[in-house]
Each structure stands twice: as structure tokens, then as C-alpha cells.
């Protein structure tokens, strides 16, 4: 097991190196010239030249990459030759000259918003999805089943921007049931009420689509294990129906769902662009979209790196979790 984790971790590092490389190559192929973008209205060739120097775009690409990578581990100093050099301590993901901030600072500021958004949405959709999915499976073919599946179908066919906008207009602008969402630093620990008011609709927006998906997945998965021979064996042993359902059927049926959900959570943690935008939440999604629109390349690569790391780590965690739960899955 330990050997396996080491090997997987090494694999992860290789993957991340390739990823930074890919981001970097794309970065240098971009038609927009960052030096010109940071130049402002009164632009002159001289300023552009200075900017190029400031952004360290005048050194060879290989060295640029080296500095980027070594920045992550040892920190780096921009404009080492000027009077006011910019210190960026390790781990340094770069410096956004457009926003005049370190990329890592920007990300750490945005991350809690996305984190709470994702966790809340995740808990909501998993609860709804599992509970309704199991009920539908247990009441297969009856009205409960048909109702749940009907709801799932509707939820499934609504795009999240539509749900978000409808909720925003009706609940906030039209019915005034909730104040305009506004994220404040220090949430949720300061101002829990405001936090919930702000996040409620975003959570629902995120949960709807996924809950519909998970309802169907859970129902089908549970129905499938009910047909398994070992569930029949459990009944033939004379176990109580509850034990049969919970210990034998659900444990096996839900394992792949819960572990797979880990991956969905990881994707979300990388930023929920649409939802964050609709509800004006300053999370990673908003940050990412802003950086793309402004061609803020250090920020783009920083966010990409973080999101990718999350997904790769989640993959490893899910695989390990699976091996722990299902003895047939061997790692190593």
C-alpha cells in the first residue's frame, strides 16, 4: 500500500510537470502580448519594452519555465535589478501584474468562497440524490418511484445558468425573500446568517443538476445490487430485511457512487464559473473567468495548476478509498 501511494504520488508529480509545461507552452503561443496589455492608455514602445522586462518576458522561454517551477519551491524575485524588487515567497505561483498581487494571494482569497459553495452544494445534492434514489429503488414501479424519476428528469434537463437566473430573479429581485448575495471576508465564521442567506441559492443551483443525476444513478445502482446473487444469499440466510438492504445491498451499491462523487466534488472545488458569476461570488470560478478575459496569464496558469492538483489528488484518494471499501480491488 505504501509503495503504491509513493508510486502514484510520483506519477502525480510527472503529470503536474507535464501540465505546467502545457500551460506554459500555451501561454507563449498566445497571440495577445502581455506586455502590451499591461501598458494602459498612454502606451509607447518604451513602456512596452519596460513591461516586457518587468514581466520577465525578455528572457529565453526555457529559463522562464525554470523560474516558474523553482518559484513554486523556492520563491522568486521579480525585477531583481530594480530598486524595488518584488519578493514572491515560496510557494510562488507567479505575480499578476494586472492586479498587482501575487497569484497565490488571489487564489487563497477566492478559495474559501468556492470551498463553501462546493461543500454546501455537494452535501445538498448527495443527501437529496441518495435519499430519493434509494426510496425510488425500494418502491420500484410505484408512485414514489415515478415521482422521483419525473423530478430527476426535469432537474436533469434544466441548465444550471437557467436555474440560477430564475432563482435570482424570483427569489431576490422579484419576491425579495433574500437580500442580494454578498460575500464578506471571514464568512462563515463571522456572520453565519448572512453566509447562509448568501449561499442558499447558489447551493440549490449547483445541487439541482447533480442531485437529479445522482438520484438516477443511485436508483439504478441499488436496483442492480438487489438483483445480485449475494443479496439473495443474504435473504436465504434469514437476515432481517433491513440488514439485507443496508448491510448487503446498499453497502455494495453505494460504494461506487460515494467514491465517484469525490471526483465531482474535486471538479467543483476548481471553481463553479456559472453559479459564481450569477450570484456575484468572488470565488475561483469568477477569478478564473476574469483572468481569462484579461489574458492574465500568470493567474490562469496558477488557477489551472491548483484545479488540476485538486483533481489528481482526488483521483488518488478515490482509488485508495475504493481499495479500502472493496477488498477485491487491490492496489500495489
Amino acid at each position: 500500500m505504501a509503495g503504491y501511494i509513493v508510486r502514484r504520488t510520483l506519477g502525480m508529480v510527472v503529470l503536474l510537470v507535464l501540465l505546467t509545461l502545457a500551460v506554459f507552452v500555451l501561454f507563449s503561443l498566445m497571440p495577445a502580448d502581455p506586455a502590451r496589455l499591461t501598458c494602459g492608455k498612454a502606451c509607447s514602445p518604451q513602456i512596452i519594452e519596460n513591461n516586457r522586462h518587468r514581466l520577465e518576458l525578455d528572457i529565453p522561454p526555457v529559463e522562464q519555465y525554470q523560474r516558474f517551477v523553482s518559484g513554486i519551491f523556492f520563491g522568486r524575485t521579480y525585477l531583481a535589478d530594480t530598486k524595488r524588487p518584488l519578493e514572491c515567497e515560496a510557494p510562488c505561483l507567479g505575480y499578476s501584474f494586472l492586479r498587482n498581487q501575487e497569484v497565490l494571494d488571489l487564489i487563497t482569497k477566492a478559495a474559501p468562497v468556492t470551498f463553501w459553495l462546493a461543500i454546501g452544494g455537494f452535501v445538498t445534492w448527495m443527501t437529496v440524490g441518495l435519499v430519493f434514489g434509494i426510496v425510488a429503488a425500494l418502491k420500484r414501479g410505484r408512485w414514489q418511484d415515478r415521482t422521483v424519476m419525473g423530478i430527476a428528469l426535469v432537474g436533469y434537463s434544466l441548465p444550471s445558468f437557467f436555474i440560477g437566473l430564475v432563482l435570482y430573479f424570483f427569489v431576490i429581485l422579484f419576491l425579495h425573500l433574500l437580500p442580494n448575495p454578498q460575500w464578506k471576508a471571514g464568512m462563515p465564521f463571522k456572520d453565519l446568517g448572512g453566509f447562509v442567506q448568501t449561499m442558499l441559492l447558489p447551493w440549490i443551483t449547483i445541487a439541482t443538476l447533480n442531485a437529479a443525476f445522482y438520484m438516477r444513478l443511485t436508483r439504478n445502482q441499488v436496483l442492480e445490487v438487489f438483483g445480485e446473487d449475494y443479496v439473495r444469499t443474504a435473504r436465504a440466510k434469514g437476515l432481517k430485511e433491513r440488514t439485507v438492504v443496508v448491510k448487503h445491498a446498499l453497502r455494495a451499491g453505494l460504494t461506487p457512487i460515494v467514491t465517484a462523487a469525490g471526483l465531482d466534488l474535486a471538479y467543483l472545488l476548481g471553481g463553479a464559473i456559472i453559479t459564481e458569476n450569477i450570484f456575484n461570488l468572488p470565488g475561483l470560478g469568477s477569478l478564473a473567468i476574469g483572468s481569462v478575459i484579461a489574458s492574465d496569464l500568470p493567474l490562469i496558469s496558477g488557477i489551472t495548476l491548483i484545479a488540476a492538483t485538486l483533481i489528481i489528488v482526488a483521483n488518488l484518494v478515490v482509488d485508495l478509498l475504493y481499495a479500502v471499501v472493496d477488498p477485491r480491488v487491490r492496489v500495489g
Binding site: 446473487d229 444469499t233 436465504a236 440466510k237 434469514g238 437476515l239 448487503h248 455494495a252
Partner: peptide, 21 residues
């Protein structure tokens, strides 16, 4: 209550009839 005590059953496929977990 009678199943597994008064009457018991074994099945065709011994792989799938035991719980893998």
C-alpha cells in the same frame, strides 16, 4: 425466521453468491 434455520439454500454460482466485501 425459518429461512437459514429450518430450510437453507445453496446456489449455482458460488462466486456471485458470496458477498464480495
Amino acid at each position: 425466521a425459518l429461512r437459514g434455520s429450518e430450510m437453507a439454500m445453496i446456489f449455482q454460482d458460488p462466486m456471485s453468491s458470496l458477498h464480495p466485501f
